Amino acid sequence: MTTRDHALLRIAVDLCVLTVREGSLQALIITRGNEPFAGRLALPGGFVRTDEDIPDAAIRELGEETGLDLGRLHLEQCGVYGEPDRDPRGRVISVAHLVVMPDLPLPVAGSDASGAAWRPVDEIRGGLAFDHDRILNEAVERARRRLELTTLATRFCLPEFTIGDLRTVYEIVWGEPVDPRNFSRKVVNTEGFVQPTGTKRVPPTGRPAALYRTGAATTLNPPILRAGGH
């Protein structure tokens, strides 16, 4: 008989929380209060408890480490990371989640985080603890692709939004300009993407803009593709 080594695993969740604020795509980042990597920036996350499901652990960790109101979040699993040396504490498998929220107040650190903040994605790439740079990059690309194929962009918006607000989400998440007229036509002509509220936003200057809310559709047919058909 051959003796085989079986790994003793711990299961964790890591959360890439994205929002559009201050004209940029921003991620929720904590400053780690404990070792390993005390004082380093990292994505929120932690270990799954023996009595909870993985999505429940993700929501609990997000609330404990940031104090945010989680009422309007969109949460989906976006990857599993299990390289043997990814965590110096031992063999840890992390189930990563993409979380999308509309523009929110500043988070409040809690649990094992000594600080929590929104930071522009482009400013934090390359400086995160563990393998969180890889998780961040892959989650951002997933969000960009989901904007092409699904109605996820509306989850970056407040409950009522203009077509211009929605276009801004696409431009900021994709990092490229979007033609206003073509975009408006695609959105309005895609069944179930948005639903008019019958009201308008009246700005201090300029023309009033019609307000919409999220429609019933979850996928886009046809898709709205980035320039060059990424």
Rank of each mutant, 00 (worst) to 15 (best):
L18I: 11
R21N: 10
L25R: 06
Q26G: 02
Q26R: 15
L28I: 08
I29F: 08
I29K: 06
I29G: 07
T31S: 13
E35K: 11
E35S: 15
P36T: 11
F37R: 10
A38F: 06
A38W: 05
A38C: 15
A38D: 13
L41F: 15
P44R: 08
F47K: 08
V48F: 04
V48K: 09
R49S: 14
D51V: 07
E52M: 07
E52K: 01
D53F: 02
D53Y: 01
D53R: 05
D56M: 07
A57E: 09
A58F: 05
E61T: 06
E61S: 10
G63R: 10
E64C: 02
E64S: 07
E64F: 01
E65H: 02
E65W: 01
E65T: 03
T66I: 04
G67M: 03
G67D: 06
L68R: 01
L68D: 03
L68S: 01
D69C: 05
L70T: 06
L70N: 01
G71F: 00
R72Q: 11
L73S: 01
L75H: 00
Q77K: 01
C78K: 00
C78T: 12
C78F: 00
V80R: 12
G82A: 15
G82H: 14
E83P: 02
R89Y: 00
G90Y: 02
V92R: 00
I93A: 02
I93C: 01
S94K: 02
S94W: 00
V95F: 05
V95I: 12
H97D: 06
H97E: 09
H97L: 04
L98Q: 10
V99P: 01
P102C: 14
P102R: 10
L104C: 13
L106N: 15
P107T: 14
V108L: 14
S111G: 13
A116G: 09
W118G: 10
W118P: 05
W118R: 06
R119D: 06
P120M: 10
P120T: 10
V121W: 05
V121F: 08
D122Q: 12
E123C: 04
I124N: 03
I124F: 04
I124W: 05
R125L: 14
G126T: 10
L128M: 07
A129Y: 02
A129L: 02
F130E: 04
F130G: 04
H132L: 06
R134M: 11
N137S: 15
N137A: 15
E138R: 14
V140G: 04
V140R: 09
E141R: 11
A143C: 10
R144W: 04
R144K: 14
R145A: 11
R145C: 02
R146P: 00
E148C: 13
E148V: 11
E148A: 14
L149G: 03
T150G: 08
T150C: 09
T151A: 11
T151G: 10
A153M: 07
A153T: 09
A153G: 10
T154K: 09
F156I: 11
C157W: 01
P159C: 07
T162F: 04
T162I: 08
I163G: 04
G164P: 00
G164I: 04
